[in-house]
């Protein structure tokens, strides 16, 4: 197991290094931040000073060398926009996103598994048809559109919920509901498909021959076998939210890592972009590890 984690960490580290190099150089292609942060009528002197301050005067390769050197000392650079350490800014945003992701994915997982399993038990039945149809709609809907429609109905017309921001528990309801829909549709479909396979398997036949009633057949014999592909998709979807639910966070003015990322990109706040990428990468690495752990727990045939 330790060797397995080591190997995985190695592969992820290689990818991460490649990613950092790529992002460092490519992000500079978007232009010079000086024009963005200084007024249009700023003097050349002011410009030079700004550039000097943020180390933008040196050749790119020198800047990169300095960045790597700082990284080795756990210095992730300074946010130009907020004039604070970039990592501090990113971790703050990440806390919001992580909370959002955990709550959403927990709800999605429970709902999708229960409903998907029940749908798979009577394939082609009324319940199956209804859930299949709604899950398809859920998987097909663009989240920004749902967010907008949600705001119009619940915030503007009915005035039940706030339109954006954070603060009270009511602020969480719309973002979570919007984020819930697509993963729910996708995971429900995978649960259903995987459950159909499991329920038509030979060991379920054995269970029936043993006289096991339907409910334990679904939730004890079928579900645990059907979970492996489901977990993979749960992981993919969770990674999607962790990487930043950009659209939803932007619309609801939610200070998560996704909104931070798009702002940083548009404002050429390079240190924040890189720090955000690293935090996401580490979070996703840990999550993948948890998923592999879950595999091994669910299926005794898997050993690392």
């Amino acid at each position: 197991m330790k060797r397995f984690i080591g190997k995985r960490a190695m592969a992820s580290a290689i990818s991460l290094v490649g990613l950092i190099v790529l992002v460092f150089f490519l992000s500079r292609l978007t232009g010079d931040p000086t024009d963005l942060y200084l007024p249009i009528d700023a003097t050349q002197e002011m410009r030079d000073k700004f550039r000097e301050l943020h180390g933008l005067n040196d050749p790119l390769i020198v800047q990169f060398g300095r960045y790597v050197w700082d990284l080795l000392h756990f210095d992730f650079g300074e946010s130009i926009r907020q004039a604070r350490p970039a990592m501090e800014v990113v971790l703050e945003g990440f806390r919001w996103t992580l909370t959002l992701a955990v709550i959403t994915m927990t709800l999605v997982t429970v709902a999708a598994i229960v409903i998907g399993s029940l749908a798979a038990f009577k394939v082609g039945g009324v319940f199956d048809r209804i859930t299949s149809f709604f899950s398809l709609i859920g998987a097909s809907a663009p989240d920004f559109w749902i967010a907008i429609v949600g705001i119009v109905i619940f915030a503007v017309q009915l005035r039940w919920l706030p339109t954006s921001g954070t603060g009270t528990i009511w602020h969480w309801i719309l973002p979570i509901s919007v984020l819930f829909i697509r993963p729910f549709g996708l995971i429900l479909q995978v649960v259903r498909g995987s459950m159909i396979t499991a329920l038509s398997s030979a060991y379920v036949k054995t269970a029936k021959a043993k006289g096991v009633p339907p409910r334990p057949i679904i939730f004890v014999h079928g579900l645990r076998n059907a979970m492996l592909p489901v977990i993979t998709v749960i992981g993919d979807q969770a990674a999607g939210i962790l990487n930043g639910a950009v659209v939803v966070e932007t619309i609801f003015g939610f200070p998560g890592i996704g909104k931070l990322m798009i702002d940083a990109i548009l404002q050429r706040d390079f240190a924040v972009i890189l720090a955000a990428i690293m935090v996401s990468a580490v979070a996703i690495f840990i999550m993948n590890l948890l998923i592999d752990l879950a595999y091994a727990m669910l299926d005794p045939r898997i050993r690392y």
Binding site: A202, Y203, K205, T206, K210, N225, D299
Partner: peptide, 17 residues
């Protein structure tokens, strides 16, 4: 309980997990 059955290919007929 009263009527029991065994099958060909016991590996796939036993629940692997």
């Amino acid at each position: 309980c009263r009527i029991a059955m065994i099958f060909q290919d016991p590996l796939s007929h036993l629940n692997p997990v």
